[in-house]
Nucleic acid binder design. Structure first.
Length: 841
RNA sequence: GCCGGAGUGGCGGAAUUGGUAGACGCCCGGGACUUAAAAUCCCGUGAGGGCUAUCCCUCGUACCGGUUCGAGCCCGGUCUCCGGCACCA
């Protein structure tokens, strides 16, 4: 049987130059080196290491049942390349991994499989850990933990107790977002377009007694501290919009009750105090507490009907901007404080109870929503800001609301003022007359922290009839999540924990009397809001984090993860960090100095040609397992990097992987072909290629241009194997440095060849090579000769050819002369080392 | 509607930030090796054109215009796609 050599492709009868043992057989060494790195402690970050630290963190996964696909690999490969590079640059790199294992996804998966969440979660963790190890990433597994570990959630609970004591955690009856499918309340951030972020079902309002965290108290700090972060602008903008700070004024109006004529003051919030004279009606939110008190007997039935109807609306209906406005008149009037005018009070669901004061002054001339409402219900529209830019009907009335700048009209003593000035003046006047004041509002709401589910951290509070809400003493934490028979959600608004009477009934820590435990659990985001701190001292028993080690490792230097956490997780983590900073647990108030969002990997649907997200239900998931088996980890790693700019989405391509695999085989052969003959010196052109490679590789790594790094290596191998250069003298240093440079991307490949070429210790204990800039410049370069900006000739010249010589050379070119015929030379522009442009007319 | 981002060959994408557009890879075509295929290696590959075809010309970075000796890159306008927010007063 004749068979071709796998490496060189020649038949054995032709005396293959490479033996069977020298082919690129990744299966022989990839697993071996992974085991070696782990066992020799190469990935373990030691606290006594004197090198400067570098903390690189991946957003830790929640252990889903479906495991990792090639899309998940992307971020992990990227961060690992960076960590290995930083290691070679002389840093003590902290690169930990753990599990975000509490919460809805883990629990829903467990319920579906009918396996207890604790057991199911553990199985999923084991599977994902195995998959993660296949990536060959240098995780320090000695620091691994799960948010479900009692020793971990002890401190999640401790933080809650501290927040309770600071007044940041409070309980409130309020209508909240309720997911009927997940059978739990949700935070505002978890409702996307009116549906549950997790399961996609429509969310309803439900009145529940909820634990809340006062994140709004930190709104300004969360907003202004964004400035100091090296984060993608997009994420900063998203957070800033979510916080939604606006400046305006609170204005006190007086309501005249339609029932008994009683005068009751109320406050509206407006960002446009300059339009106060244009307020032609007032709107209360249907949930506003004053509505029953002011409603006239004639309108009472209509009002009640409307309130009931509004309560039944889902968030989707209610927040739809395209829906026609609805509302009813209350029969009451309000007195405008600036001109004493009486305007009708309506209720309408376009005014939200949760923002501002739940009541507005409506200025239809200068607000689109008010304009639509007033037009529908025939309410007068009074223009108070004049501008020629306003869009008008033929009769001069406004055709739509005018929201731009202008001068005041119909505004008494303020007529003629510019709107910006009027804002100041009118606010000042209101303040001096105690009818209003400057005011700031946020779209950000307090964080609904209660979940009516089993699989979460129990909220460490005890309800005592005598003492009220009492936090569990810090030395009695953690409050362990009890074992239960039935962990399915009840749907009643109470968590399954409420059914366990021996757990619920306890003693009051203060008076010792009978008391009941809080049965709500914390949301999924609780554990992930501070886990990055824990990695600095994962086994620390005295607190959240050992202060010395916190000072050593924190904050996180680079945080890598998907854009999907732009608001939720990143905002919560920043909030927790600021609270813990205020508690003096840590000395910094921003957790992640630099953030990198890797793009998604999608697949092209063969039928439609469209890119689609990988998902189990579509059956289009590309599993790395088969690819690793066929091509090896290093090929898949480089394939992930080569797919495109790391911050952009990219289509997965098996064919592209083939190209990488070919490259690694060529590079493998090049190293083995040359190592025997390699000496102490390089030929000039080889030395040049080496320095160009170091320069390109270093610059592109620093710039996170991972896709073009792979190109740099391909160009290098193409150059050194081209006919003229393949026999040129080459040094052992060039081969060694090539391996060091490629090691962050292809660690197994590099380590194997490093040892194969006679080195004793690991390649990851080496130093990153430096380049000499002068050696990256080639001796002869091609200079372009242009006539009027068009390329007419190319000349190969020495790199230091002076200007005038280049000019002369350019004019001598045959093709240049042809194009200059009959023309006068006006100007000649010479860019040394680049081009000559002859301007002629 | 508002706020971002992006439009470059058959495809993924390069381009030192104003200086040779299409690096590198994929696909495809041709060749070498082979009885043959696979693998491997070599050559070609933006479109169109030219009678002195290893040479040369025209067009070409979504579209229209501008600045400049020179524009994928800067400026003004238009279109398309993608993401986020969306009755927040």
């Amino acid at each position: 049987m004749r068979a071709p050599c796998c490496v060189c492709g020649n038949y054995w009868k032709r005396r293959c130059e490479m033996s069977e043992t020298r082919k690129y057989d990744f299966k022989k060494f990839e697993a071996k080196w992974r085991e070696y790195w782990e066992k020799s402690g190469l990935h373990t970050c030691r606290d006594d290491d004197p090198r400067p630290k570098y903390y690189c963190l991946d957003m830790f996964p929640y252990p889903s049942g479906s495991g990792l696909h090639v899309g998940h690999w992307r971020g992990y490969v990227l961060s690992d390349v960076w960590c290995r590079y930083k290691t070679l640059r002389g840093y003590n790199v902290l690169h930990p991994m753990g599990w975000d294992a509490f919460g809805l996804p883990a629990e829903n998966d467990a319920i579906k499989k009918k396996i207890h969440p604790r057991i199911n979660t553990q199985e999923n963790i084991d599977n994902i850990r195995r998959q993660l190890k296949e990536i060959g990433a240098m995780y320090d597994w000695s620091r691994e933990f799960s948010t479900t570990d009692p020793e971990y959630y002890r401190w999640t609970q401790w933080t809650f107790v501290k927040m309770f004591k600071m007044g940041l955690a409070y309980k409130l009856d309020m209508p909240i977002n309720w997911c009927p499918s997940c059978k739990t309340g949700l935070a505002n951030e978890e409702v996307v377009g009116g549906v549950c972020e997790r399961c996609g079902n429509e969310v309803h309002k439900k009145n529940l007694n909820q634990w809340m965290l006062k994140i709004t108290e930190y709104a300004d700090r969360l907003l202004y501290d964004l400035e100091k972060l090296n984060w993608p602008e997009k994420v900063k903008t998203m957070q800033s919009n979510w916080i939604g700070r606006s400046e305006g004024a609170d204005v006190v109006f007086t309501a005249v009750s339609g029932r008994d004529g009683a005068r009751i003051d109320f406050t509206v919030y407006t960002t446009r105090p300059d339009t106060l004279f244009g307020a032609t009606y007032v709107v209360f939110s249907p949930e506003h507490k004053m509505v029953p008190d002011i409603c006239s007997p004639e309108q009472e039935a209509d009002v009640r009907k409307y309130i009931e109807w509004a309560a039944r609306q889902t968030d989707i209906d209610r927040t739809s901007t395209t829906r026609e406005k609805t509302g009813v008149f209350t029969g009451a009037y309000a007195v405008n404080p600036v001109n004493g005018e009486k305007v009708p009070i309506w209720i309408a669901d376009y005014v939200l109870m949760g923002y501002g004061t739940g009541a507005i002054m409506a200025v239809p001339a200068h607000d689109e929503r008010d304009f639509a409402f007033a037009s529908k219900f025939g309410i007068p529209i009074v223009e108070v800001i004049h501008s020629d830019d306003a869009i008008r009907n033929d009769d001069g009335t406004l055709a739509e609301a005018y929201t731009g700048s202008g001068k005041l009209i119909n505004s008494g003593e303020y007529n003629g003022l510019d709107w910006a000035e009027a804002k100041q003046k009118i606010t000042g006047m209101l303040e001096s007359r105690k009818l209003g004041k400057k005011s700031v509002n946020y779209k950000l709401r307090d964080w609904i922290y209660s979940r009516q589910r089993y699989w979460g951290e129990p909220i460490p509070i005890v309800h005592c009839e005598k003492c009220g809400r009492v936090p569990v003493p810090e030395d009695q934490l953690p409050v362990l999540l009890p074992e239960v028979e039935s962990y399915e959600p009840t749907g009643t608004g109470e968590s399954p924990l409420a059914a366990i009477s021996e757990w619920v009934n306890t003693e009051c820590p203060e008076c010792g009397g009978p008391a009941r435990r809080e049965t709500d659990t914390m949301p999924q985001w609780a554990g992930s809001s501070w886990y990055f701190l824990r990695y600095a001292s994962p086994r620390y028993c005295e607190g959240v984090v050992d202060p010395d080690l916190a000072a050593k490792y924190l904050p996180v230097d680079l945080y890598v993860g998907g854009i999907e956490h732009a608001i939720l997780h990143l905002l919560y983590a920043r909030f927790f960090t600021k609270v813990l900073c205020d508690l003096d647990v840590i000395k910094f108030d921003e957790p992640f100095t630099r953030l990198f969002n890797q793009g998604m990997i999608y697949v092209i649907d063969e039928a439609t040609g469209q890119g689609e997200k990988m998902s189990k239900s579509k059956g289009n998931v590309v599993s790395p397992d088969a690819l690793v088996n066929q091509y090896g980890t290093d090929t898949v790693r480089m394939g992930e990097l080569f797919a495109g700019p790391p911050e952009q989405d990219a289509a997965w391509s098996d064919q592209s992987i083939e190209g990488i695999y070919r490259f690694l085989k060529r590079a493998w052969k090049w190293v083995l072909d040359n190592i025997e003959r390699a000496g102490a010196e390089d030929a000039r052109e080889i030395l040049q290629e080496r320095h160009i490679l170091i320069k390109n590789c270093t610059e592109r790594l620093e710039g996170f241009k991972f896709n073009t790094i792979i190109s740099a290596f391909m160009e290098f191998i193409n150059a050194v194997t081209e006919p003229g250069k393949s026999d040129a003298a080459i040094s052992k240093q060039t081969i060694g440095e090539f391996l060091i440079l490629i090691s962050p991307m292809a660690p197994h490949f590099a380590e194997e060849l490093w040892r194969e070429t006679g080195h004793r210790n690991s390649i990851f204990e080496q130093e990153w090579p430096e380049y000499d800039k002068t050696l990256t410049i080639k001796d002869t370069i091609e200079v372009v000769i242009q006539v009027n900006g068009k390329v007419r000739a190319k000349c190969s010249v020495s790199v230091d050819t002076p200007k005038d010589e280049l000019e002369k050379l350019g004019l001598e070119q045959k093709n240049v002369k042809k194009h200059l015929e009959g023309k006068d030379i006006k100007k000649i522009i010479v860019v040394p080392g680049k081009l000559v442009n002859i301007v002629a007319k």
